[in-house]
C-alpha cells in the first residue's frame, strides 16, 4: 500500500504517571451489508487486528468487527509512560492490508494563561 499519509493520528495527555492516549485510524470499515447506488453490495472491508506497543510491551491488542465505526477511534490509559516516548502502532484488515507507524507521544499544546 503506497500511501503518502499515515493512517494513524494520536494525541496524548499526561496526568502524573498516567497517559491518556487517543488514537484514530483512517479506514472505511465497510460492513458488507451496505449497497451502492446500483444496488450491489459493497464488500466488507474492516480492520480486524490493532496492536499498540510501548517500550517493548504490548499494551493494547484489539480485535475489531465490522460494527466499529468508520475511522475507528480508540482511547485508553497507560501508566508508566512519559512525554517523548514512542508508540508502535499496527493494524491489519480483512483484505490483508496493513499499516504500521511509530509515533512520538506528545502532549497537547497547553493554553496560555
Amino acid at each position: 500500500m503506497a500511501k503518502s499519509k499515515s493512517t494513524f493520528k494520536i494525541r496524548s495527555r499526561f496526568k502524573g504517571d498516567v497517559a491518556t492516549i487517543q488514537c484514530q485510524i483512517t479506514h472505511p470499515m465497510e460492513t458488507g451489508m451496505r449497497k451502492d447506488k446500483k444496488g450491489n453490495l459493497i464488500p466488507a472491508h474492516f480492520i480486524q487486528k490493532f496492536t499498540c506497543e510501548h517500550a517493548g510491551d504490548v499494551v493494547l491488542d484489539t480485535e475489531l468487527n465490522t460494527s466499529v465505526s468508520k475511522n475507528p477511534y480508540i482511547k485508553f490509559k497507560l501508566s508508566g509512560a512519559k512525554e517523548g516516548d514512542t508508540l508502535k502502532l499496527h493494524w491489519v484488515d480483512n483484505k490483508g492490508n496493513s499499516d504500521s507507524a511509530e509515533l512520538e507521544m506528545k502532549s497537547r499544546r497547553r493554553k496560555k494563561k
Binding site: D57, V58, V59, D61, T62, E63, L64, I74, L78
Partner: peptide, 10 residues
C-alpha cells in the same frame, strides 16, 4: 470489539 489490555494499561 475485544480489547486485550497489557499489564500497564489502565
Amino acid at each position: 470489539a475485544t480489547f486485550n489490555l497489557g499489564s500497564r494499561t489502565e
